[in-house]
């Protein structure tokens, strides 16, 4: 350990050193006066804005950042200056016509008498994180959409093949899709094909019963098809009563049932 480092540790940090530390912090730090004029911005802050400190000094912070919160009651700086607590918020800023996402934390600056004379703000650039989140959300939406297709099979007959795992969120989504389809096509029969559902337990069965009830309330008939022997066994062993819901083992049978309900007849050409 050399002499200089020793002196930093042993003696109190003097003002110059403190300022230097503040300047070197790798995330933007800004101090504004009571009138929102910028009185300090560290190096990272200047780099973030793409300007030198001399250009920024004395400008109003809202004219520099153009954020969503600027000059609205949402501005955390304003809240802090009015005596609020230290707080962190997400925000969207516009710098050089580029939209960046930030997370900023604001603390009040007080004089010796405890009067608030300004505010200290440090900013974390979370643009990449927000972009990732948006991408993730978009992807999960797409996955949701492709996982519950509704196929119009015939005039007023719609088929909904369900593949994978049915949890309560998925069941809700299936129900939403079905009910929307019924309203859209004024479907009379909707076939829920559960051949691709890995396992049917009490929860899944309850979801299916709920879905069937909802379709009935809309004035549509629901046929559940694709019930495998194993599923039939489990449902009976679990003591689940599917009530009035029509069930079939294959989609083919369900379709012919649907035709019967709609009084259609399939006739072979002579």
């Amino acid at each position: 350990m050399n002499m200089e480092q020793k002196s930093i540790i042993s003696s109190e940090i003097d003002e110059n050193l403190a300022l230097e530390v503040l300047k070197q912090i790798p995330t933007p730090v800004m101090v504004v006066a009571h009138d929102f004029k910028i009185i300090f911005m560290n190096q990272a802050g200047c780099a973030f804005l793409g300007k030198t400190f001399d250009e920024i000094k004395g400008s109003y912070c809202y004219s520099i950042f153009n954020s969503r919160h600027c000059q609205t009651p949402e501005c955390r700086m304003k809240k802090v200056m009015e005596g609020g607590e230290v707080s962190t918020a997400r925000n969207e800023v516009k710098i050089n016509d580029k939209t960046l996402y930030i997370e900023y934390t604001v603390a009040p600056l007080k004089d010796d008498n405890g009067n608030i004379i300004g505010g200290l703000e440090y900013i974390i650039d979370i643009t990449d994180r927000v972009r990732q989140e948006q991408k993730l959300r978009e992807q999960s939406r797409i996955i949701m959409e492709i996982s519950t297709p509704a196929i119009k099979l015939w005039d007023r007959i719609v088929v909904l093949p369900v593949v994978g795992v049915v949890d309560s969120m998925r069941a809700q989504q299936i129900m939403d899709t079905m009910l929307k389809q019924i309203a859209l096509n004024s479907s009379k029969v909707i076939i829920l094909d559960i051949q691709g559902v890995a396992a049917v337990d009490t929860a899944v069965a309850n979801h299916l019963i709920k879905i069937a009830k909802a379709t009935k309330l809309m004035g549509c008939r629901c046929i559940i098809s694709g019930i495998s022997p194993a599923v039939a066994q489990t449902l009976v062993q679990l003591g689940i009563d599917l009530g009035e819901i029509n069930t079939n083992s294959t989609l083919e049978d369900a379709l012919s049932d649907a035709f019967a309900l709609l009084k259609f007849e399939v006739v072979k050409k002579q």
Partner: peptide, 9 residues
């Protein structure tokens, strides 16, 4: 309506 039906369920 779909929303009404699912809410009632």
């Amino acid at each position: 309506q779909p929303g009404v039906a699912s809410a009632l369920i």
